[in-house]
């Protein structure tokens, strides 16, 4: 046993070092900045100041929650029916799902700008019929659309994984015991797919709530999410202390949301991608 643990230590060492340098140390630095002022003295001022930003926090959480619900509603049926298709069809469609992810997030978001802009594709098209241009950039809808579009594959993937791993004889057993299609879903497929759903929610909600790029480009500068606010503090105002405080609170919020989520999954995360 002793020998094994030595090997374990050696094998785990690279990750431990990596985690220390790139996760723990930065976290400590964030905490340090969050609780100090520019001169380096300990203070709660940064945290107190955050009350000004409660609206931004609220909107960020709201938009990401909406985006997460929409991705879930799109992804769940898609993943379910996909898992029933022939293997070739499954491979092909999963390829199509993953394809946009091979392109950079920035490029994808720029493309959406081109589509939604005042002189964009949609408005040009509407113009052909003599319709007035519709303002889309800068609306909450555009931001949420951006989130849904960019993060949809992250919802599909874990749900599809649990669905495709589901043993078909279990479904037959449920049918055999008297379940019609809906009952089979409600009593068997849904509970078994919860771990995938929870992973998917985590993988969509977390990047959505902290995004700054999508809201910057598709929000047209009028919609400020928490990510934008942090970015501005860091990059424009050089107020690292406030930026750190914002980040810290965001992290705590995400942590709390995830803990609430995992309550729903009955602590049973097997099959999911995020523990």
């Amino acid at each position: 046993m002793k020998k094994k643990s030595l090997i374990n230590t050696i094998v785990n060492a690279p990750y431990a070092i990596w985690a220390t340098i790139f996760i723990i140390v930065p976290l400590v630095i964030v905490c340090y900045y969050a609780f100090t002022d520019k001169a380096g003295h300990f203070t709660f001022d940064n945290i107190k100041q955050l009350t000004e930003y409660s609206g931004v926090f609220g909107i960020s959480l709201l938009y990401s929650a909406i985006a997460t619900v929409i991705t879930l509603l799109l992804a769940y049926p898609f993943a379910y029916f996909l898992s029933k298709r022939s293997e070739n069809s499954q491979r092909m469609q999963m390829l199509l799902v993953m394809l946009p992810m091979w392109m950079n997030l920035l490029i994808r978001t720029y493309s959406w700008m081109n589509i939604l802009e005042k002189n964009g594709i949609i408005n040009n098209f509407l113009g052909l019929f003599g319709l007035d241009p519709v303002t889309m950039i800068g609306t909450p809808g555009a931001v949420i659309l951006g989130m849904v579009y960019n993060y949809l594959p992250y919802m599909i993937l874990p749900i599809y994984t649990v669905m495709s791993k589901m043993d078909n004889t279990l479904i037959e057993a449920a049918r055999d015991l008297g379940c019609n299609g809906f009952n089979t879903w409600k009593r068997l497929i849904l509970p078994l797919s919860i771990p995938g759903v929870v992973s998917g929610i985590a993988m969509v909600f977390v990047p959505s709530v902290s995004t700054f790029y999508i809201s910057q480009k598709l929000g047209g500068g009028t919609i400020m999410l928490i990510g934008d606010t942090i970015e501005r503090q860091m990059q424009v105002q050089y107020n690292y202390n406030l930026g750190a405080a914002l980040s810290l609170v965001l992290m705590v919020l995400i942590l709390v949301s995830m803990m609430i989520m995992s309550k729903f999954s009955d602590d049973d995360m097997e099959g999911g991608l995020v523990a």
């Binding site: 004889t169 379940c179 078994l192």
Partner: peptide, 20 residues
């Protein structure tokens, strides 16, 4: 008649018990 309406029940080879 679909399986759920037939007055038969099956014991499957690998039992197919519901893990949840």
């Amino acid at each position: 008649l679909p399986p759920h309406k037939r007055p038969v029940n099956t014991i499957f080879q690998r039992y197919a018990l519901f893990p949840n």
